[in-house]
Each structure stands twice: as structure tokens, then as C-alpha cells.
Computed example of a mutant assay.
Amino acid sequence: MSVTVTPRVPTLVPAGTAVTVPPRRSLIARVADRFGKALLQICVWTVGLFWLLPTVGLFIESLRAPADNSATGWWTVFGRPARLTLSNYLNLMQDKDILGSLWNSVLITVPSTVLVVGIGALAAYALAWIDFPGRNWVYALTVALIVVPVQVAIIPDAAVFRTLHIYGDVPAVVAFHVAFGLPFAIFLLRDFFAGIPRDLLEAARVDGGSELGIFRRVVLPIGRPAIAALAVYEFMWVWNDLLVALVFADSAHAPITYQLLSQMRTFSSNIDLIGPGAFVSMLVPLVVFFSFRRYFLHGMLAGSDK
């Protein structure tokens, strides 16, 4: 007697056609999916408002009379908005010390930014695409100089500036900012320029282009976002500097940050100048940043995928 056994053949399902039931999600996960985006927006707006609160307070203080600032807080203005006045800004425009310091800030910041961007771009191109002996060592030394603190060079540079008879004048402050701004500028632009396709530069050389011509006609247009980002960064850094101005500038050639510190020594009697002066000093770099924010963000993120 024979017994026939029928083998059990599993049912074959083509790949990707099986119906799978997703696992049941917890209540907390479903609530997070439903309200997560709204909660994130609320958190962002809350942080933004707290970040802007000191700026709003400074702006309101600059529009209040000195007696009101001494008597009550700036938030009380919402109950009496009619007490706001522009007289503080009119007095600021008539103060020769403040106006002179604002002009000194321009004389310090603009040349420093132009020199750092110009020299840094040329040096970065040379380190990225021109072969010369010791190129890697020069680049390594440049990167190492980024971590050198400003305080280390104050005394030696002060001696050098006194020998050159520029100590206390605008060129001394500009020279110091340029010296300490170049290492970071070269580091930032060199990495960006190194990402330019080699074939593009080789084609320009085959066409008879000189290194300076290639830099001006090929590298600069491609590197515009990084250059603009560096210019914004350097402008904001130099404009808001106080330490270098305190050491290397006298009162006649001091920037606005130095002058505001001098006014703080008699805070109670000069509050009508400190408020609008501080707001104007803060407004200039903000205008520069928001005017070029597209280039700034593009330049900061351009090398993230390399």
C-alpha cells in the first residue's frame, strides 16, 4: 500500500506586489505629525521675537526723551505713543564727535574690506591653481594663522606702528584688520576656487589667456557668491570691532564703537545720544547684510557638497 504525499508549495508573490499593513503608530507620534509643523513655526517665531526684543527696545529708547528713559522702561511707550520724538536723532546729527566717528568707521571699514577681499582672492587663486614650490606649506601656514588670537599681536604691532609713525591713525587700524582678516579670507576663497572645473581653466589657458586674465574673466564671475559672502562678513566684523580701535586709534580717528564707549562714561547725561548712536551703528551692518543676504547664504553653502 502506497501513500501519496502532496508537497506544500508556497505561493509565490511577485516582488513589490505584496500588501503590507503599516504598524500601528502611537498616539504621541500621530499628535506630533498633526501639530509638529505648527509647533515648529511657533518655536521659530518665539525665538525670533526674543532675539529682536533688544533691538526693538533700543529703537524705542532712541525715540524717547531722556527724562522718560530715566523714569520708566521702554515698554511703557505702548500706553503713551505720542511721547515719541525724533529730537534725539536731530541732536545726533548735530554732534560733531558722533558724526566724525561715523565717518572714521567708514574710512576704516571700507578699505579694510576691499583690501582683504582683493588680496585674499588673488592669493586664494594662486594657492588653488598655480603650481609653485612650497604651495602646500604656504596654505598650511595660512590656515594655522586663523587660530592666532588678536591679543598676541597687539604689542608687537604697536611697536611697528610707532616706528612707522602711524600709531593712533586710521592706517594703523586698517593694517591690523587686513593682517588678521587675510588668513580666513584665503582659506574660504581657496576652497571655493579649488572646486572650479579644471577643464574650464585649461581651455582658457589654451586660448591664450594669462593668469590674471583667467582670474578676472573666469574665476571672479564664478566665485562672486563666495566673494560677496566674504565682503559682508568682513564688513560686519570690522564695523563692530572695539578692541582694535581702543588699542590703535586715538580719539580723533576712533570709530563709532569707540565713541559710544566714551559716551557711556557719562551715561545719565548722554543717554539721548547713546540710544540713537547705538541704533545707527547697528543699522548700517544690518542694511549691508540684508542687501546681500542672498549672496551671503549662497557663498556660505556653496562648498557644502564638495
Score class of each variant (00 low, 15 high):
residue 291 S to P: 00
residue 191 D to I: 06
residue 271 I to T: 03
residue 155 I to R: 09
residue 48 G to L: 06
residue 225 P to W: 05
residue 21 V to F: 03
residue 45 W to H: 10
residue 51 W to A: 14
residue 115 L to W: 05
residue 179 A to G: 08
residue 102 L to A: 07
residue 230 L to Q: 00
residue 28 I to V: 12
residue 77 V to H: 04
residue 227 I to T: 03
residue 132 F to K: 12
residue 40 L to C: 00
residue 200 L to Y: 11
residue 32 A to C: 09
residue 222 I to K: 08
residue 228 A to K: 08
residue 126 A to Q: 06
residue 298 H to S: 15
residue 278 A to Y: 05
residue 254 A to K: 05
residue 61 E to A: 12
residue 105 S to I: 02
residue 93 M to S: 10
residue 26 S to Q: 07
residue 90 L to F: 10
residue 213 G to L: 06
residue 151 Q to E: 15
residue 104 N to H: 02
residue 67 A to G: 07
residue 59 F to Q: 03
residue 139 Y to M: 13
residue 174 V to G: 05
residue 111 P to I: 00
residue 258 Y to W: 06
residue 201 L to S: 02
residue 43 C to V: 15
residue 140 A to E: 05
residue 173 V to M: 14
residue 118 G to E: 06
residue 130 I to Y: 02
residue 253 H to C: 13
residue 285 P to S: 08
residue 106 V to P: 08
residue 182 L to F: 00
residue 145 L to K: 03
residue 274 I to S: 02
residue 14 P to W: 10
residue 47 V to N: 00
residue 144 A to L: 12
residue 268 S to Q: 09
residue 87 S to W: 04
residue 288 V to R: 02
residue 87 S to P: 03
residue 200 L to R: 10
residue 215 F to Y: 04
residue 242 L to S: 07
residue 130 I to G: 04
residue 291 S to F: 06
residue 107 L to E: 12
residue 91 N to E: 11
residue 87 S to K: 09
residue 60 I to A: 15
residue 184 F to V: 12
residue 270 N to E: 15
residue 166 I to H: 01
residue 238 V to I: 14
residue 24 R to L: 07
residue 21 V to I: 08
residue 27 L to P: 08
residue 60 I to E: 10
residue 183 P to H: 08
residue 283 L to T: 14
residue 35 F to M: 02
residue 31 V to Y: 08
residue 9 V to C: 06
residue 251 S to Q: 15
residue 36 G to F: 07
residue 245 A to H: 01
residue 221 P to I: 12
residue 296 F to A: 15
residue 288 V to M: 09
residue 42 I to E: 08
residue 202 E to V: 08
residue 176 F to C: 11
residue 78 F to K: 11
residue 248 F to C: 11
residue 100 G to R: 13
residue 275 G to R: 00
residue 165 H to Y: 07
residue 250 D to P: 01
residue 67 A to Q: 08
residue 200 L to A: 10
residue 45 W to L: 14
residue 79 G to A: 14
residue 91 N to C: 05
residue 153 A to V: 15
residue 167 Y to M: 14
residue 87 S to C: 02
residue 86 L to M: 12
residue 233 Y to H: 01
residue 117 V to K: 06
residue 180 F to G: 03
residue 273 L to P: 01
residue 157 D to W: 14
residue 268 S to L: 07
residue 173 V to N: 12
residue 295 Y to K: 04
residue 193 F to N: 03
residue 100 G to P: 08
residue 190 R to I: 02
residue 33 D to G: 04
residue 74 W to I: 00
residue 293 R to L: 11
residue 26 S to M: 05
residue 183 P to L: 09
residue 208 G to R: 13
residue 277 G to C: 06
residue 32 A to R: 14
residue 52 L to S: 15
residue 92 L to G: 01
residue 2 S to R: 12
residue 56 V to G: 11
residue 303 G to D: 02
residue 250 D to N: 12
residue 261 L to V: 11
residue 104 N to C: 07
residue 176 F to W: 09
residue 296 F to H: 13
residue 30 R to N: 13
residue 14 P to G: 10
residue 252 A to I: 14
residue 290 F to D: 07
